[in-house]
């Protein structure tokens, strides 16, 4: 494999993303886990930039590294935790989970490397924010409006669920 800039960038970004995820699994303090996951989301935004999805990369930074991480930090701080996360209930539980996740990973990788996906090289002129906006507001305008309704419903539902009940 020749060493192009895209390959080097992909390698660094994927190592950052996987490293953040592995650290999230291994850290014992909850706040450290949240920060590691924010790092992973940030690296995934870099992966989107590599794939010519600039708008989605910016949205990823705004929503995931910004909003969702802060929301999760609120969730962490509003609930009480022992500082250290205890292990699983039974000692065989984590081993069994590891075997299940590993088997799933093996099957997926086997399928990925067996399937011949011969994609043609994409014409980069049809990508870009302007084309994306045209497609969203012309072809996909009804799902767009439905997404706004969904967000409104989620907002109202979250407020009602988290509201203190009066007895």
């Amino acid at each position: 494999m020749n060493l192009t800039g895209e390959f080097v960038a992909f390698f660094i970004l994927s190592v950052m993303a996987i490293g953040g995820a592995v650290f999230m699994i291994n850290f014992t303090r909850v706040i450290h886990m949240a920060l590691a996951l924010a790092f992973t989301f940030f690296s995934i935004a870099g992966i989107y930039l590599l794939l010519n999805a600039e708008f989605v990369a910016v949205i990823q930074v705004l929503i995931y590294t910004g909003a969702v991480s802060i929301l999760m930090l609120f969730g962490i701080m509003l609930t009480k935790h022992r500082d250290e996360e205890k292990g699983s209930i039974a000692p065989w539980h984590s081993v069994l989970s590891f075997i299940a996740a590993g088997a799933f990973f093996g099957i997926v990788m086997w399928i990925i490397y067996r399937t011949p996906i011969a994609g043609e090289q994409v014409d980069l002129k049809q990508f870009g924010v302007a084309r994306l906006g045209e497609a969203v507001f012309k072809q996909y305008v009804i799902p767009f409006e439905l997404a706004s309704v969904l967000l409104l419903v989620a907002l109202v539902g979250a407020v009602i669920l988290a509201k203190k009940e009066e007895r």
Partner: peptide
Amino acid sequence: AILFSIGLYG
């Protein structure tokens, strides 16, 4: 696939 498996394990 790697990220998904890590998430599944978590």
